[in-house]
C-alpha cells in the first residue's frame, strides 16, 4: 500500500478509506461483550467491511458501517447494536 502523497498520476492505489470515513454512515454501533465471546470468528468472516480483528475481536469504528450482520450472526449473542449519539 502506498501513501496518498506518492500518487503522482491519476492512478488509484489500494488504500483503506477509499469511500471516505465510512464510520459516519452508522446509526447503530456494534459493541462486543468479551465475557460472552467464544472467539468463533464468525463475525470476522461475515463482516463485509473487514473491520473486525480476527484474534482480539475488536472493531475499527472509523470504517464500520453498522450493518449489524455481525450481531445477527453471533451464536452467543456477544455483539449488541447500540444507538449512536
Amino acid at each position: 500500500m502506498k501513501s496518498v502523497t506518492k500518487a503522482y498520476r491519476p492512478i488509484s492505489w489500494p488504500m483503506k478509506g477509499s469511500g471516505g470515513d465510512t464510520g459516519s454512515w452508522r446509526s447503530h454501533r456494534p459493541v462486543v461483550d468479551t465475557k460472552k465471546c467464544s472467539k468463533c470468528q464468525l463475525c470476522w468472516v461475515y463482516c463485509p467491511e473487514a473491520v473486525i480483528d480476527r484474534h482480539e475481536i475488536t472493531i475499527d469504528y472509523r470504517y464500520c458501517k453498522g450493518c449489524g450482520v455481525c450481531a445477527k450472526e453471533c451464536p452467543t449473542g456477544a455483539i449488541s447494536m447500540e444507538k449512536e449519539e
Binding site: 483503506k16 477509499s18 465510512t22 470476522w44 463485509p48 473491520v51 450493518c67
Partner: peptide, 23 residues
C-alpha cells in the same frame, strides 16, 4: 473458518452499502 488465511484483498472503508454481499 479458523483455517482461512489472514490476507485481506478488500480494504476497509470502501463505497459499498452496509451489509453488501459483494465485498
Amino acid at each position: 473458518i479458523k483455517q482461512l488465511p489472514d490476507n485481506e484483498q478488500v480494504l476497509s472503508g470502501n463505497g459499498s452499502c452496509g451489509g453488501c454481499p459483494s465485498p
